[in-house]
Design a protein around this nucleic acid. Sequence first.
DNA 1: TGATTTTTTGCTGTTTTTTGCTGTTTTTTG
DNA 2: CAAAAAACAGCAAAAAACAGCAAAAAATCA
Lengths: 257, 257
Amino acid sequence: MDATRVLTMLKEERQRIILNEVELHNRVQLTDIAEKLDVSIDTVRRDVKELDAEARLRKVHGGAISLGFATYSPKRNSVYALDEKIIIAEKAAKLLKENSVVLIDGGTTCLELARLLPAELKLTCFTLSLPVAMELLHKPNVDTIFIGGQLSKDAQIVLGSNTINNLSEIKVDYSFIGTGYVDVQFGLTEFDWDIVQTKKAVIKASKKTVLLCISEKLNSQHRFKTCDLNAVHSLVTELEPTHDLLRNFRNQEIALL
Amino acid sequence: MDATRVLTMLKEERQRIILNEVELHNRVQLTDIAEKLDVSIDTVRRDVKELDAEARLRKVHGGAISLGFATYSPKRNSVYALDEKIIIAEKAAKLLKENSVVLIDGGTTCLELARLLPAELKLTCFTLSLPVAMELLHKPNVDTIFIGGQLSKDAQIVLGSNTINNLSEIKVDYSFIGTGYVDVQFGLTEFDWDIVQTKKAVIKASKKTVLLCISEKLNSQHRFKTCDLNAVHSLVTELEPTHDLLRNFRNQEIALL
DNA sequence: TGATTTTTTGCTGTTTTTTGCTGTTTTTTG
DNA sequence: CAAAAAACAGCAAAAAACAGCAAAAAATCA
Protein backbone atom coordinates (compact mmCIF):
# COMPACT_ATOMS: atom_id res chain seq x y z
CA MET A 1 0.00 0.00 0.00
CA ASP A 2 0.95 3.64 -0.46
CA ALA A 3 3.70 4.57 1.95
CA THR A 4 2.49 8.13 2.38
CA ARG A 5 -0.80 6.89 3.66
CA VAL A 6 -0.81 7.47 7.37
CA LEU A 7 -4.26 7.03 8.67
CA THR A 8 -6.27 4.01 7.76
CA MET A 9 -9.92 4.61 8.03
CA LEU A 10 -12.42 2.22 9.44
CA LYS A 11 -15.17 1.10 7.18
CA GLU A 12 -17.86 2.21 9.59
CA GLU A 13 -16.29 5.62 9.88
CA ARG A 14 -16.22 5.98 6.12
CA GLN A 15 -19.82 4.97 5.77
CA ARG A 16 -20.80 7.42 8.48
CA ILE A 17 -19.13 10.19 6.54
CA ILE A 18 -20.86 9.17 3.32
CA LEU A 19 -24.20 9.08 5.05
CA ASN A 20 -23.62 12.45 6.59
CA GLU A 21 -22.68 13.92 3.26
CA VAL A 22 -25.83 12.53 1.71
CA GLU A 23 -28.04 13.96 4.43
CA LEU A 24 -26.34 17.30 4.25
CA HIS A 25 -26.51 17.82 0.51
CA ASN A 26 -29.31 15.44 -0.35
CA ARG A 27 -27.01 13.79 -2.83
CA VAL A 28 -23.44 12.70 -3.44
CA GLN A 29 -21.40 11.45 -6.33
CA LEU A 30 -19.23 8.42 -5.92
CA THR A 31 -16.27 10.12 -7.59
CA ASP A 32 -16.43 13.06 -5.19
CA ILE A 33 -16.50 10.82 -2.17
CA ALA A 34 -13.67 8.68 -3.47
CA GLU A 35 -11.53 11.73 -4.00
CA LYS A 36 -12.42 13.27 -0.68
CA LEU A 37 -11.73 10.13 1.33
CA ASP A 38 -8.83 9.07 -0.82
CA VAL A 39 -10.08 5.59 -1.48
CA SER A 40 -10.85 3.85 -4.72
CA ILE A 41 -14.19 4.34 -6.30
CA ASP A 42 -14.90 0.66 -5.95
CA THR A 43 -14.68 0.94 -2.21
CA VAL A 44 -17.11 3.79 -2.18
CA ARG A 45 -19.39 1.89 -4.51
CA ARG A 46 -19.39 -1.09 -2.19
CA ASP A 47 -20.06 1.12 0.79
CA VAL A 48 -22.98 2.79 -0.90
CA LYS A 49 -24.30 -0.56 -2.00
CA GLU A 50 -24.29 -1.73 1.60
CA LEU A 51 -25.93 1.41 2.88
CA ASP A 52 -28.57 1.06 0.23
CA ALA A 53 -29.20 -2.53 1.27
CA GLU A 54 -29.60 -1.28 4.82
CA ALA A 55 -32.04 1.34 3.54
CA ARG A 56 -29.96 4.18 4.91
CA LEU A 57 -29.82 5.95 1.56
CA ARG A 58 -30.79 5.30 -2.01
CA LYS A 59 -28.16 4.31 -4.52
CA VAL A 60 -28.53 5.74 -7.98
CA HIS A 61 -26.44 5.61 -11.07
CA GLY A 62 -23.29 7.58 -10.29
CA GLY A 63 -24.03 8.35 -6.69
CA ALA A 64 -26.57 8.30 -3.92
CA ILE A 65 -29.45 10.44 -2.74
CA SER A 66 -31.07 10.83 0.61
CA LEU A 67 -34.20 8.89 1.37
CA GLY A 68 -36.17 12.00 2.27
CA PHE A 69 -35.25 13.46 -1.04
CA ALA A 70 -36.13 10.37 -2.97
CA THR A 71 -39.38 9.16 -1.52
CA TYR A 72 -42.38 10.78 -3.03
CA SER A 73 -45.06 10.95 -0.40
CA PRO A 74 -48.13 9.00 -1.45
CA LYS A 75 -50.46 11.23 0.58
CA ARG A 76 -49.74 14.10 -1.71
CA ASN A 77 -52.55 14.91 -4.06
CA SER A 78 -51.82 15.80 -7.57
CA VAL A 79 -51.85 19.44 -6.54
CA TYR A 80 -48.43 20.84 -5.92
CA ALA A 81 -47.87 22.69 -2.62
CA LEU A 82 -51.48 22.21 -1.65
CA ASP A 83 -50.94 23.21 1.96
CA GLU A 84 -49.48 26.55 0.99
CA LYS A 85 -52.30 27.16 -1.43
CA ILE A 86 -54.89 26.43 1.22
CA ILE A 87 -53.29 28.99 3.51
CA ILE A 88 -53.40 31.52 0.71
CA ALA A 89 -57.01 30.73 -0.09
CA GLU A 90 -57.99 31.12 3.55
CA LYS A 91 -56.38 34.53 3.72
CA ALA A 92 -57.99 35.61 0.48
CA ALA A 93 -61.42 34.43 1.58
CA LYS A 94 -61.30 36.92 4.44
CA LEU A 95 -61.30 39.75 1.93
CA LEU A 96 -64.75 38.80 0.69
CA LYS A 97 -67.72 40.81 1.85
CA GLU A 98 -71.33 39.79 1.70
CA ASN A 99 -73.05 40.58 -1.58
CA SER A 100 -69.93 41.68 -3.36
CA VAL A 101 -69.25 40.94 -6.99
CA VAL A 102 -65.99 39.15 -7.66
CA LEU A 103 -64.14 37.31 -10.36
CA ILE A 104 -62.12 34.16 -9.72
CA ASP A 105 -59.46 33.22 -12.21
CA GLY A 106 -58.24 29.72 -13.06
CA GLY A 107 -55.31 27.81 -11.58
CA THR A 108 -55.05 25.56 -8.57
CA THR A 109 -54.71 28.34 -6.01
CA CYS A 110 -57.84 30.11 -7.22
CA LEU A 111 -59.57 26.76 -7.26
CA GLU A 112 -58.79 26.37 -3.57
CA LEU A 113 -60.32 29.75 -2.93
CA ALA A 114 -63.51 28.67 -4.69
CA ARG A 115 -63.52 25.48 -2.67
CA LEU A 116 -63.10 27.30 0.63
CA LEU A 117 -65.88 29.83 0.14
CA PRO A 118 -68.19 29.62 3.17
CA ALA A 119 -71.51 28.03 2.37
CA GLU A 120 -73.46 30.92 3.87
CA LEU A 121 -71.63 33.67 2.00
CA LYS A 122 -73.76 35.47 -0.58
CA LEU A 123 -71.70 36.37 -3.63
CA THR A 124 -71.98 37.09 -7.31
CA CYS A 125 -69.06 35.36 -8.85
CA PHE A 126 -67.73 35.56 -12.41
CA THR A 127 -65.24 33.02 -13.61
CA LEU A 128 -63.36 31.86 -16.70
CA SER A 129 -62.38 28.50 -15.33
CA LEU A 130 -64.29 25.24 -15.76
CA PRO A 131 -62.98 23.65 -12.55
CA VAL A 132 -63.75 26.81 -10.57
CA ALA A 133 -67.24 26.87 -12.02
CA MET A 134 -67.76 23.23 -11.07
CA GLU A 135 -66.68 24.05 -7.55
CA LEU A 136 -68.97 27.05 -7.29
CA LEU A 137 -71.95 24.87 -8.16
CA HIS A 138 -71.64 23.49 -4.63
CA LYS A 139 -72.02 26.89 -3.01
CA PRO A 140 -75.73 27.45 -2.45
CA ASN A 141 -75.47 31.21 -2.02
CA VAL A 142 -73.10 31.98 -4.84
CA ASP A 143 -74.58 33.21 -8.08
CA THR A 144 -72.14 32.15 -10.76
CA ILE A 145 -71.75 33.70 -14.18
CA PHE A 146 -69.49 31.95 -16.59
CA ILE A 147 -67.70 34.20 -19.03
CA GLY A 148 -68.09 32.78 -22.51
CA GLY A 149 -65.30 32.15 -24.96
CA GLN A 150 -62.96 29.67 -26.55
CA LEU A 151 -61.80 26.92 -24.24
CA SER A 152 -58.12 26.21 -23.70
CA LYS A 153 -57.62 22.49 -23.26
CA ASP A 154 -54.49 23.00 -21.19
CA ALA A 155 -55.61 25.66 -18.78
CA GLN A 156 -59.28 24.64 -18.71
CA ILE A 157 -60.25 28.28 -18.97
CA VAL A 158 -61.79 30.39 -21.68
CA LEU A 159 -59.45 32.59 -23.66
CA GLY A 160 -59.27 34.71 -26.75
CA SER A 161 -61.00 37.66 -28.31
CA ASN A 162 -64.50 36.54 -27.45
CA THR A 163 -63.57 36.20 -23.79
CA ILE A 164 -61.77 39.52 -23.74
CA ASN A 165 -64.76 41.17 -25.35
CA ASN A 166 -67.10 39.69 -22.78
CA LEU A 167 -64.82 40.82 -19.98
CA SER A 168 -64.86 44.35 -21.36
CA GLU A 169 -68.53 44.60 -20.45
CA ILE A 170 -68.19 43.91 -16.73
CA LYS A 171 -66.66 45.55 -13.69
CA VAL A 172 -66.25 43.55 -10.51
CA ASP A 173 -65.29 44.70 -7.02
CA TYR A 174 -62.46 42.24 -6.64
CA SER A 175 -60.72 39.83 -8.93
CA PHE A 176 -58.54 37.01 -7.64
CA ILE A 177 -55.90 35.97 -10.07
CA GLY A 178 -52.90 33.69 -10.20
CA THR A 179 -49.78 34.09 -12.25
CA GLY A 180 -47.05 31.90 -13.62
CA TYR A 181 -44.21 34.15 -12.55
CA VAL A 182 -43.83 37.32 -10.55
CA ASP A 183 -40.91 39.61 -9.94
CA VAL A 184 -40.55 43.05 -8.38
CA GLN A 185 -38.80 44.42 -11.41
CA PHE A 186 -40.48 42.51 -14.25
CA GLY A 187 -43.95 42.32 -12.77
CA LEU A 188 -46.34 39.48 -13.60
CA THR A 189 -45.23 37.33 -16.51
CA GLU A 190 -46.47 34.20 -18.24
CA PHE A 191 -45.39 31.46 -20.52
CA ASP A 192 -48.37 31.97 -22.80
CA TRP A 193 -49.35 35.00 -24.79
CA ASP A 194 -53.09 34.28 -24.90
CA ILE A 195 -53.21 33.93 -21.16
CA VAL A 196 -51.52 37.27 -20.76
CA GLN A 197 -54.12 38.95 -22.94
CA THR A 198 -56.92 37.43 -20.93
CA LYS A 199 -55.38 38.35 -17.59
CA LYS A 200 -54.97 41.90 -18.79
CA ALA A 201 -58.69 42.00 -19.56
CA VAL A 202 -59.48 40.57 -16.14
CA ILE A 203 -57.47 43.25 -14.38
CA LYS A 204 -59.17 45.90 -16.48
CA ALA A 205 -62.55 44.53 -15.47
CA SER A 206 -61.76 44.81 -11.76
CA LYS A 207 -61.79 47.69 -9.35
CA LYS A 208 -59.19 45.87 -7.28
CA THR A 209 -57.02 42.89 -8.16
CA VAL A 210 -55.66 40.38 -5.68
CA LEU A 211 -52.76 38.18 -6.68
CA LEU A 212 -52.66 34.72 -5.13
CA CYS A 213 -49.16 33.32 -5.36
CA ILE A 214 -47.05 30.81 -3.47
CA SER A 215 -43.73 32.21 -2.37
CA GLU A 216 -41.83 29.79 -4.55
CA LYS A 217 -42.92 31.77 -7.59
CA LEU A 218 -41.59 35.03 -6.27
CA ASN A 219 -38.60 36.46 -8.08
CA SER A 220 -39.13 34.47 -11.25
CA GLN A 221 -40.00 35.63 -14.70
CA HIS A 222 -40.87 34.44 -18.16
CA ARG A 223 -41.45 35.64 -21.67
CA PHE A 224 -44.71 37.58 -21.78
CA LYS A 225 -45.70 40.35 -19.43
CA THR A 226 -49.16 40.76 -17.99
CA CYS A 227 -48.61 43.93 -16.00
CA ASP A 228 -46.35 45.70 -13.56
CA LEU A 229 -46.48 44.75 -9.93
CA ASN A 230 -48.24 47.97 -8.96
CA ALA A 231 -51.17 47.12 -11.23
CA VAL A 232 -52.10 44.61 -8.55
CA HIS A 233 -53.48 45.88 -5.28
CA SER A 234 -52.71 42.99 -2.96
CA LEU A 235 -50.40 40.03 -2.91
CA VAL A 236 -51.35 36.98 -0.90
CA THR A 237 -48.70 34.38 -0.17
CA GLU A 238 -48.50 31.61 2.39
CA LEU A 239 -45.92 33.64 4.31
CA GLU A 240 -46.35 36.22 7.02
CA PRO A 241 -46.15 39.72 5.51
CA THR A 242 -43.08 40.34 7.64
CA HIS A 243 -41.23 37.36 6.26
CA ASP A 244 -37.78 38.03 4.91
CA LEU A 245 -38.55 36.56 1.49
CA LEU A 246 -41.06 39.37 0.97
CA ARG A 247 -38.62 42.17 1.69
CA ASN A 248 -38.30 43.13 -1.99
CA PHE A 249 -42.05 43.49 -2.18
CA ARG A 250 -42.38 45.62 0.92
CA ASN A 251 -41.42 48.98 -0.51
CA GLN A 252 -43.90 48.69 -3.37
CA GLU A 253 -47.41 50.04 -3.64
CA ILE A 254 -48.79 46.55 -3.33
CA ALA A 255 -50.38 45.41 -0.06
CA LEU A 256 -49.00 42.22 1.44
CA LEU A 257 -51.31 39.75 3.14
CA MET B 1 -11.47 20.84 -6.26
CA ASP B 2 -10.52 21.18 -9.88
CA ALA B 3 -11.92 24.43 -11.17
CA THR B 4 -12.40 23.15 -14.68
CA ARG B 5 -14.42 20.22 -13.43
CA VAL B 6 -17.98 20.68 -14.57
CA LEU B 7 -20.55 19.66 -12.05
CA THR B 8 -22.33 16.61 -13.34
CA MET B 9 -25.84 16.13 -12.18
CA LEU B 10 -27.41 12.89 -11.13
CA LYS B 11 -30.29 11.72 -13.24
CA GLU B 12 -32.64 11.53 -10.27
CA GLU B 13 -31.73 15.05 -9.30
CA ARG B 14 -32.50 16.31 -12.77
CA GLN B 15 -35.81 14.55 -12.90
CA ARG B 16 -36.69 15.96 -9.52
CA ILE B 17 -36.04 19.45 -10.81
CA ILE B 18 -38.10 18.85 -13.93
CA LEU B 19 -40.95 17.53 -11.84
CA ASN B 20 -40.77 20.48 -9.52
CA GLU B 21 -40.83 22.90 -12.40
CA VAL B 22 -43.85 21.17 -13.87
CA GLU B 23 -45.74 21.22 -10.59
CA LEU B 24 -44.87 24.81 -9.98
CA HIS B 25 -45.84 26.27 -13.30
CA ASN B 26 -48.19 23.57 -14.55
CA ARG B 27 -46.21 23.31 -17.75
CA VAL B 28 -42.68 23.34 -19.07
CA GLN B 29 -41.00 23.34 -22.42
CA LEU B 30 -38.26 20.84 -23.12
CA THR B 31 -36.07 23.53 -24.63
CA ASP B 32 -36.36 25.70 -21.52
CA ILE B 33 -35.41 22.84 -19.25
CA ALA B 34 -32.52 21.81 -21.46
CA GLU B 35 -31.16 25.30 -21.36
CA LYS B 36 -31.69 25.72 -17.66
CA LEU B 37 -30.00 22.46 -16.74
CA ASP B 38 -27.41 22.71 -19.47
CA VAL B 39 -28.02 19.30 -20.97
CA SER B 40 -29.10 18.28 -24.44
CA ILE B 41 -32.74 18.34 -25.32
CA ASP B 42 -32.60 14.60 -25.95
CA THR B 43 -31.71 14.00 -22.34
CA VAL B 44 -34.61 16.10 -21.18
CA ARG B 45 -36.89 14.33 -23.60
CA ARG B 46 -35.82 10.96 -22.25
CA ASP B 47 -36.28 12.13 -18.68
CA VAL B 48 -39.75 13.41 -19.40
CA LYS B 49 -40.57 10.18 -21.18
CA GLU B 50 -39.54 8.21 -18.10
CA LEU B 51 -41.49 10.43 -15.74
CA ASP B 52 -44.47 10.08 -18.00
CA ALA B 53 -44.13 6.29 -17.94
CA GLU B 54 -44.05 6.49 -14.14
CA ALA B 55 -47.20 8.62 -14.28
CA ARG B 56 -45.49 11.50 -12.51
CA LEU B 57 -46.36 14.03 -15.19
CA ARG B 58 -47.88 14.05 -18.63
CA LYS B 59 -45.69 14.40 -21.68
CA VAL B 60 -47.05 16.57 -24.43
CA HIS B 61 -45.66 17.76 -27.72
CA GLY B 62 -42.78 20.07 -26.90
CA GLY B 63 -42.98 19.80 -23.16
CA ALA B 64 -44.83 18.39 -20.20
CA ILE B 65 -47.79 19.33 -18.03
CA SER B 66 -48.68 18.43 -14.50
CA LEU B 67 -51.06 15.57 -13.87
CA GLY B 68 -53.37 17.55 -11.64
CA PHE B 69 -53.69 19.93 -14.47
CA ALA B 70 -54.57 17.39 -17.11
CA THR B 71 -56.63 14.66 -15.53
CA TYR B 72 -60.27 14.85 -14.89
CA SER B 73 -62.12 11.63 -14.15
CA PRO B 74 -65.81 12.05 -13.54
CA LYS B 75 -67.70 9.13 -12.17
CA ARG B 76 -70.91 8.31 -13.84
CA ASN B 77 -72.13 5.34 -11.85
CA SER B 78 -75.46 6.91 -11.17
CA VAL B 79 -76.59 7.76 -14.67
CA TYR B 80 -80.05 6.47 -15.35
CA ALA B 81 -80.43 4.18 -18.39
CA LEU B 82 -76.82 4.63 -19.35
CA ASP B 83 -76.82 1.78 -21.86
CA GLU B 84 -79.70 3.28 -23.82
CA LYS B 85 -78.05 6.68 -23.77
CA ILE B 86 -74.82 5.24 -25.12
CA ILE B 87 -76.72 3.67 -28.02
CA ILE B 88 -78.32 7.02 -28.74
CA ALA B 89 -75.00 8.82 -28.56
CA GLU B 90 -73.43 6.34 -30.96
CA LYS B 91 -76.17 6.91 -33.49
CA ALA B 92 -75.95 10.66 -33.13
CA ALA B 93 -72.19 10.65 -33.54
CA LYS B 94 -72.61 9.21 -37.02
CA LEU B 95 -74.36 12.42 -38.10
CA LEU B 96 -71.25 14.45 -37.49
CA LYS B 97 -69.20 15.48 -40.48
CA GLU B 98 -65.60 16.66 -40.43
CA ASN B 99 -65.19 20.38 -39.82
CA SER B 100 -68.82 21.05 -39.05
CA VAL B 101 -69.96 23.49 -36.41
CA VAL B 102 -72.27 22.03 -33.79
CA LEU B 103 -73.81 22.77 -30.44
CA ILE B 104 -74.14 20.20 -27.72
CA ASP B 105 -76.71 20.80 -25.03
CA GLY B 106 -76.59 19.63 -21.42
CA GLY B 107 -78.05 16.47 -19.94
CA THR B 108 -76.64 13.01 -19.52
CA THR B 109 -77.47 11.86 -23.05
CA CYS B 110 -75.71 14.79 -24.64
CA LEU B 111 -72.83 14.19 -22.27
CA GLU B 112 -72.49 10.68 -23.62
CA LEU B 113 -72.37 12.09 -27.13
CA ALA B 114 -69.52 14.39 -26.13
CA ARG B 115 -67.75 11.46 -24.53
CA LEU B 116 -68.06 9.28 -27.62
CA LEU B 117 -66.78 11.81 -30.11
CA PRO B 118 -63.96 10.15 -32.05
CA ALA B 119 -60.55 11.53 -31.12
CA GLU B 120 -59.64 12.22 -34.73
CA LEU B 121 -62.82 14.13 -35.63
CA LYS B 122 -62.29 17.82 -36.29
CA LEU B 123 -65.19 19.89 -34.97
CA THR B 124 -66.09 23.31 -33.75
CA CYS B 125 -68.33 22.75 -30.81
CA PHE B 126 -70.42 25.20 -28.83
CA THR B 127 -71.85 24.18 -25.52
CA LEU B 128 -73.77 25.49 -22.51
CA SER B 129 -72.92 22.62 -20.23
CA LEU B 130 -70.02 22.42 -17.79
CA PRO B 131 -69.78 18.62 -17.84
CA VAL B 132 -69.92 18.57 -21.63
CA ALA B 133 -67.20 21.20 -21.77
CA MET B 134 -65.03 19.17 -19.40
CA GLU B 135 -65.50 16.16 -21.62
CA LEU B 136 -64.65 18.06 -24.78
CA LEU B 137 -61.32 19.07 -23.27
CA HIS B 138 -60.22 15.51 -23.91
CA LYS B 139 -60.90 15.69 -27.63
CA PRO B 140 -57.73 16.93 -29.27
CA ASN B 141 -59.39 17.99 -32.50
CA VAL B 142 -62.45 19.68 -31.10
CA ASP B 143 -62.38 23.43 -30.78
CA THR B 144 -64.74 24.23 -27.93
CA ILE B 145 -66.52 27.51 -27.32
CA PHE B 146 -68.38 27.88 -24.08
CA ILE B 147 -71.43 30.11 -24.24
CA GLY B 148 -71.34 32.52 -21.37
CA GLY B 149 -74.13 33.13 -18.90
CA GLN B 150 -75.57 32.50 -15.53
CA LEU B 151 -74.96 29.03 -14.17
CA SER B 152 -77.79 26.81 -13.06
CA LYS B 153 -76.66 24.72 -10.10
CA ASP B 154 -79.14 21.96 -10.88
CA ALA B 155 -78.63 21.53 -14.57
CA GLN B 156 -74.96 22.56 -14.59
CA ILE B 157 -75.62 24.63 -17.68
CA VAL B 158 -75.76 28.35 -18.37
CA LEU B 159 -79.17 29.93 -18.63
CA GLY B 160 -80.91 33.27 -18.70
CA SER B 161 -80.95 36.44 -20.72
CA ASN B 162 -77.21 36.68 -21.06
CA THR B 163 -77.04 33.17 -22.46
CA ILE B 164 -79.95 33.75 -24.81
CA ASN B 165 -78.35 36.94 -26.01
CA ASN B 166 -75.09 35.16 -26.68
CA LEU B 167 -76.89 32.41 -28.53
CA SER B 168 -78.58 34.97 -30.75
CA GLU B 169 -75.22 35.77 -32.29
CA ILE B 170 -74.37 32.31 -33.57
CA LYS B 171 -75.66 29.82 -36.12
CA VAL B 172 -74.46 26.24 -36.04
CA ASP B 173 -74.95 23.42 -38.54
CA TYR B 174 -76.37 20.99 -36.02
CA SER B 175 -77.49 21.22 -32.45
CA PHE B 176 -77.97 18.16 -30.28
CA ILE B 177 -80.47 18.70 -27.52
CA GLY B 178 -82.25 16.73 -24.90
CA THR B 179 -85.69 17.35 -23.49
CA GLY B 180 -87.59 16.56 -20.37
CA TYR B 181 -90.74 15.39 -22.15
CA VAL B 182 -91.83 14.81 -25.73
CA ASP B 183 -95.14 14.07 -27.28
CA VAL B 184 -96.46 13.98 -30.84
CA GLN B 185 -99.26 16.34 -30.03
CA PHE B 186 -97.74 18.63 -27.40
CA GLY B 187 -94.20 18.72 -28.74
CA LEU B 188 -91.19 19.24 -26.48
CA THR B 189 -92.03 20.37 -22.97
CA GLU B 190 -90.14 21.05 -19.73
CA PHE B 191 -90.66 21.44 -16.06
CA ASP B 192 -88.62 24.63 -15.97
CA TRP B 193 -89.40 27.89 -17.69
CA ASP B 194 -85.79 29.14 -17.86
CA ILE B 195 -84.68 25.98 -19.55
CA VAL B 196 -87.42 26.34 -22.14
CA GLN B 197 -86.27 29.85 -22.97
CA THR B 198 -82.73 28.67 -23.42
CA LYS B 199 -83.68 25.69 -25.56
CA LYS B 200 -85.74 27.97 -27.79
CA ALA B 201 -82.67 30.09 -28.32
CA VAL B 202 -80.59 27.01 -29.09
CA ILE B 203 -83.03 25.82 -31.73
CA LYS B 204 -83.09 29.29 -33.24
CA ALA B 205 -79.30 29.27 -33.41
CA SER B 206 -79.23 25.98 -35.36
CA LYS B 207 -79.78 25.12 -38.99
CA LYS B 208 -80.85 21.65 -37.93
CA THR B 209 -81.78 20.32 -34.51
CA VAL B 210 -81.37 16.73 -33.39
CA LEU B 211 -83.31 15.53 -30.38
CA LEU B 212 -81.65 12.84 -28.26
CA CYS B 213 -84.25 11.08 -26.17
CA ILE B 214 -84.66 7.70 -24.54
CA SER B 215 -87.90 5.99 -25.48
CA GLU B 216 -89.16 6.16 -21.94
CA LYS B 217 -89.74 9.87 -22.37
CA LEU B 218 -91.88 9.46 -25.45
CA ASN B 219 -95.53 10.33 -25.09
CA SER B 220 -95.09 12.43 -21.99
CA GLN B 221 -95.62 16.11 -21.37
CA HIS B 222 -95.22 18.88 -18.83
CA ARG B 223 -96.01 22.50 -18.15
CA PHE B 224 -93.82 24.67 -20.38
CA LYS B 225 -93.48 24.17 -24.09
CA THR B 226 -90.20 24.50 -25.95
CA CYS B 227 -91.48 23.89 -29.47
CA ASP B 228 -93.60 21.69 -31.67
CA LEU B 229 -92.26 18.35 -32.75
CA ASN B 230 -91.72 19.51 -36.32
CA ALA B 231 -89.33 22.23 -35.15
CA VAL B 232 -86.89 19.37 -34.62
CA HIS B 233 -85.38 17.69 -37.65
CA SER B 234 -84.35 14.33 -36.24
CA LEU B 235 -85.20 12.20 -33.27
CA VAL B 236 -82.66 9.69 -32.00
CA THR B 237 -83.77 7.00 -29.57
CA GLU B 238 -82.22 3.72 -28.53
CA LEU B 239 -84.85 1.86 -30.59
CA GLU B 240 -84.82 0.78 -34.19
CA PRO B 241 -86.73 3.35 -36.28
CA THR B 242 -89.17 0.58 -37.16
CA HIS B 243 -89.95 -0.18 -33.54
CA ASP B 244 -93.59 -0.20 -32.61
CA LEU B 245 -93.20 2.39 -29.87
CA LEU B 246 -92.23 4.92 -32.51
CA ARG B 247 -95.32 4.44 -34.65
CA ASN B 248 -96.91 7.75 -33.55
CA PHE B 249 -93.79 9.59 -34.66
CA ARG B 250 -93.56 7.95 -38.03
CA ASN B 251 -96.07 10.06 -39.90
CA GLN B 252 -94.48 13.33 -38.83
CA GLU B 253 -91.95 15.53 -40.58
CA ILE B 254 -89.29 14.43 -38.12
CA ALA B 255 -86.64 11.91 -39.19
CA LEU B 256 -86.27 8.86 -36.96
CA LEU B 257 -82.82 7.40 -36.29
C1' DT C 1 4.10 -15.60 18.49
C1' DG C 2 3.28 -17.37 14.08
C1' DA C 3 0.30 -19.71 10.95
C1' DT C 4 -4.14 -19.70 9.00
C1' DT C 5 -8.44 -17.89 7.84
C1' DT C 6 -11.37 -14.09 6.86
C1' DT C 7 -12.25 -9.55 5.43
C1' DT C 8 -11.16 -5.56 2.99
C1' DT C 9 -9.38 -3.19 -0.78
C1' DG C 10 -7.66 -2.03 -5.29
C1' DC C 11 -7.00 -3.58 -9.91
C1' DT C 12 -8.23 -5.53 -14.59
C1' DG C 13 -11.19 -6.46 -18.19
C1' DT C 14 -15.99 -6.70 -19.57
C1' DT C 15 -20.75 -5.25 -19.62
C1' DT C 16 -24.25 -1.91 -18.98
C1' DT C 17 -26.00 2.73 -18.73
C1' DT C 18 -26.00 7.33 -19.96
C1' DT C 19 -25.63 10.92 -23.06
C1' DG C 20 -25.02 13.76 -27.10
C1' DC C 21 -25.03 13.64 -31.98
C1' DT C 22 -26.69 12.55 -36.77
C1' DG C 23 -30.07 11.96 -40.04
C1' DT C 24 -34.95 10.88 -40.76
C1' DT C 25 -39.83 11.00 -39.79
C1' DT C 26 -43.72 13.13 -37.74
C1' DT C 27 -46.26 17.01 -36.07
C1' DT C 28 -47.37 21.73 -35.92
C1' DT C 29 -48.26 26.09 -37.89
C1' DG C 30 -48.79 29.77 -41.09
C1' DC D 1 -48.77 22.97 -49.13
C1' DA D 2 -44.31 24.24 -47.22
C1' DA D 3 -41.30 25.70 -43.54
C1' DA D 4 -40.19 25.00 -38.78
C1' DA D 5 -40.22 22.49 -34.65
C1' DA D 6 -40.31 18.37 -32.33
C1' DA D 7 -39.99 13.41 -31.95
C1' DC D 8 -37.66 9.36 -33.13
C1' DA D 9 -34.22 5.77 -34.24
C1' DG D 10 -29.75 4.43 -34.25
C1' DC D 11 -24.87 5.11 -33.22
C1' DA D 12 -20.69 5.95 -30.63
C1' DA D 13 -18.05 7.84 -26.84
C1' DA D 14 -17.81 8.28 -21.99
C1' DA D 15 -19.02 7.03 -17.51
C1' DA D 16 -20.43 3.80 -14.34
C1' DA D 17 -21.38 -0.84 -12.74
C1' DC D 18 -19.99 -5.43 -12.40
C1' DA D 19 -17.40 -9.83 -11.85
C1' DG D 20 -13.46 -11.91 -10.68
C1' DC D 21 -8.85 -11.88 -8.75
C1' DA D 22 -4.92 -11.07 -5.88
C1' DA D 23 -2.57 -8.48 -2.41
C1' DA D 24 -2.94 -6.27 2.07
C1' DA D 25 -4.91 -5.95 6.47
C1' DA D 26 -7.34 -7.77 10.18
C1' DA D 27 -9.04 -11.44 12.91
C1' DT D 28 -8.70 -16.01 14.77
C1' DC D 29 -6.58 -19.70 16.95
C1' DA D 30 -3.16 -23.27 18.27
